[in-house]
């Protein structure tokens, strides 16, 4: 079973829920798909036991063969090929999407590819949770290939929990596409509601079963609960604001680790999701 934890709005508690659920459901694989700002291991506090470079194919132009015909630049849909006539032809690393089109159009066979490192895949393990984390290099613009690679590295037969990036854009599609169930973590504020509605558009279009967790459930209004009734989406859990949870979180300790009560609640949550699926 694969359960993705998403949210729409950032900072609602995705990582707190994903790591707590992983500790409760262990043994389990946890994927940190928020590759721009991966935080799951701040809460898991495991030591890294392996790391591999993540690279994408990147075009290299042979200056001896290139005759500056500009066909590669004309074809490139992203304007990533830069032609300095008579001097140099090269691809801009952060813009190139590695489609391979320039190689196909080059009449002189002057373009080949070599790997370009754009991030890391880190492996951690603690409390029977195996964490696979994607970490994109600062300055890289496109996270998608790294998110896809994380899903290619899933071990077979294991239950999987995915900590998704915030928002409702394509990277959230990539990190919920293979899920059997999506948990949406929100907060009872107009920002939380607005972004939850956007996230539901993604899960609706992918036809995924969903449930809602309301974090800091007592700080705001009841509009999330009204929405969940209207759309018949179960509210799986409510986590009231607690300065203890906030303070422990700030030090990297999730509720399922410091509180027996919350550990039990996350075990119940996991069984509840298994029953729904």
């Amino acid at each position: 079973m694969i359960v993705s934890v998403a949210s729409g709005k950032g900072g609602t508690g995705k990582t707190t829920v994903a790591v707590s659920m992983a500790i409760a459901a262990a043994p389990v694989t946890l994927i940190d798909a928020d590759v721009e700002e991966p935080n799951a291991n701040i809460l898991l506090r495991a030591s890294k036991h392996d790391a591999t470079d993540f690279s994408v194919p990147f075009p290299i132009v042979d200056p001896l063969r290139c005759d500056y015909c500009e066909k590669c630049a004309e074809f490139c849909a992203y304007n990533a090929m830069i032609v300095l006539k008579g001097l140099k032809v090269f691809a801009a690393p952060e813009i190139c999407k590695s489609c391979g089109g320039c190689i196909l159009v080059c009449p002189k066979d002057a373009i080949s590819e070599k790997p370009r490192k754009m991030g890391l895949i880190n492996y951690y393990s603690r409390l029977n949770v195996n964490l696979i984390e994607g970490e994109i290099n600062v300055g890289e613009a496109v996270a998608k290939p790294l998110i896809n690679e994380l899903f290619r590295r899933l071990p077979e037969g294991n239950d999987v929990i995915v900590d998704c990036p915030p928002g409702s854009a394509h990277s959230v599609v990539e990190s919920t596409r293979s899920a059997d169930f999506v948990v949406l973590v929100t907060e009872p504020t107009p920002f939380g509601l607005h972004d939850l509605i956007e996230a539901l558009k993604v899960t609706d279009s992918l036809k995924k079963p969903v449930g809602i967790i309301i974090n800091r459930s007592d700080i705001g209004d009841d509009k999330i609960e009204i929405l969940s009734k209207e759309k018949s989406i179960p509210i799986l859990m409510k986590i009231p604001y607690s300065s203890e949870i906030a303070s422990k979180y700030s030090q990297g300790i999730p509720p399922a680790e410091f509180s027996d009560y919350w550990r039990e609640e996350f075990i119940k949550l996991w069984h509840n999701i298994m029953e729904i699926v």
Partner: peptide, 8 residues
């Protein structure tokens, strides 16, 4: 949020 293209 993040550090990707939208933030750059």
């Amino acid at each position: 949020p993040g550090i990707g293209c939208q933030v750059i």
